[in-house]
Design a binder for these strands. Structure first.
Length: 110
DNA sequence: AATTTGACGCGGT
DNA sequence: CACCGCGCCAAAT
């Protein structure tokens, strides 16, 4: 993490999210030192699909556990399918047990 | 070049 | 409990 690029850092963090776990935009933003820049995290993730890295952006949802960005995955169910294939239960576009599988970068990476 | 909007989050009304 | 507005920064129009 030499480069202090906001986006680059987001990618690095998201890449470290373990399977079966999820995190939120705000958590990442907070870890980056800008708790109120959650929007930028969203933008960064949107770029991930262009970045062509193995970035599991589907493991990042909003603070409520809703799959707000599923549309950006091309297919409406793509994000959900990916999560389900990892053992994460989704219901009504929302992550079940969100709090239980929540992965906090500031806590896990600290 | 200026304005709007967006995969957000939180506090206030 | 529902709706509104603000903050933050970058990209799209």
């Amino acid at each position: 993490m030499d480069n202090a690029n906001f986006f680059r850092r987001v990618y690095d963090i998201v890449r470290q999210i373990p399977p079966g776990r999820v995190t939120s935009y705000g958590a990442i933003a907070q870890f980056l030192g800008s708790p109120q820049s959650a929007r930028m995290v969203g933008w960064a993730l949107n770029n991930t699909k262009t970045e062509l890295g193995d970035i599991p952006a589907h493991r990042v949802v909003n603070h409520n556990g809703f799959l707000t960005g599923k549309k950006a995955f091309g297919g409406i169910n793509t994000m959900q399918e990916l999560l389900e294939s990892e053992g994460i239960e989704i219901q009504n576009d929302q992550v079940i047990r969100f709090q239980e599988i929540f992965w906090d970068p500031a806590k896990e990476l600290s």
